[in-house]
Nucleic acid binder design. Structure first.
Lengths: 129, 129
DNA sequence: TGTTGCGTTGACGTGAGCGTCAAGGTTTAG
DNA sequence: CTAAACCTTGACGCTCACGTCAACGCAACA
C-alpha cells in the first residue's frame, strides 16, 4: 500500500509517517516511480509507535520497541532495552505524581485560605506525559 | 535599582525580566539615560510570578495575580480572576493525576507480564506542570 | 584614556512532533 | 484531454519561556 492508505488505516497523517522515516523509525520500500511502499508489518510498527506515544513516551523512546519488533519478536516490549524504557518512564511518572500531589495540596490550601507564603520549589519541575 | 540587581535579587536573569516587560507583566520606569528602574514593589511582583510558575502556571496565567497586586491587594490571589485560575489549574492537575495513574498501571502491568494488547487512549493526553 | 562592566534594542535559536504551504511529477477517472 | 487526486522533496511555522549572540551606548575606575 502507499503512504496515504497507511496513514488512513493507522489514523494518522502522511506527514507523520514521513517524519518517522526521517527519524529512522520507519523504513519504507520504493516503487519504480519513487512512491513509498508499505505492508502490514509497517502498519504494525506505526500502531506500536502510536500506542507508546499515547502512554507518554517520546518518539525517541519508541525506538527500542520498533527495533525489537523488527528483530522478529512478536511484541515490542519483550527486549531488554524496551523494558528499560518502561522502567525509566515509570520512575518519571512516579516523580510526576508526587509533584502533582504537592501542587494539588498547594492549590487547595490557597483556595481555602489566603496568603500562606509561597515556597518556590527546586525548579527541577517538569511533569509531562 | 537597575535590571541587573533586580535579576540577582530575584534569582533570575535580565533576559527574563525584559521578557516579562515585553509581555506587559512588569512595567519599569526609565532613568534619563534609558536604563530601566525598579523598586521593592517590582521585586515583589517578580517573586509572585516565580512562585506561580513553580506551581506550573503559565506566564499568561500569572497575569491576574500581578494585576491583583498592582491593584493594591496585599496578596496576589485575593482577586476573583486569580482564584479562577487556581480552580482551573486544580481541575487540570486532577485530570493529569487520573491520567498518570492510568499510565502507571499500564507500565506496571507491562513490566510484570507481556503483550496485553495496547489500547491507545482518547489522544487528548497532555499533562504538564 | 583605555578597559571593564553595566545597560539598550533586535533578532535568531531551542525542543517535539508534526502542520502547512510551495512547486512540481504521476496516476486515475471521466 | 483534462482535471482531480495522489505522490515527491524542501522549507518555514507553531508553542513557551526565555538563551544567546550582535552591535551599540553609558559609566566608573586606574
Amino acid at each position: 500500500m502507499r503512504i496515504g492508505e497507511l496513514a488512513k488505516r493507522a489514523g494518522t497523517t502522511t506527514r507523520a509517517l514521513r517524519f518517522y522515516e526521517s527519524e529512522g523509525l520507519l523504513e519504507a520500500g520504493r516503487t519504480p516511480n519513487g512512491y513509498r511502499e508499505y505492508d502490514e508489518h509497517h502498519l504494525r510498527l506505526v500502531r506500536e509507535i502510536q500506542s507508546l506515544q499515547a502512554v507518554g513516551l517520546s518518539l525517541e523512546d519508541t525506538r527500542p520497541f520498533v527495533a525489537c519488533l523488527r528483530a522478529g519478536h512478536e511484541s515490542g516490549d519483550s527486549c531488554p532495552d524496551s523494558r528499560e524504557v518502561y522502567r525509566r518512564k515509570l520512575a518519571e511518572v512516579d516523580a510526576c505524581l508526587d509533584r502533582l500531589n504537592t501542587v494539588r495540596e498547594f492549590l487547595l490550601a490557597r483556595l481555602a485560605f489566603q496568603d500562606p507564603c509561597l515556597v518556590p520549589e527546586p525548579k527541577e519541575f517538569q511533569c509531562s506525559s
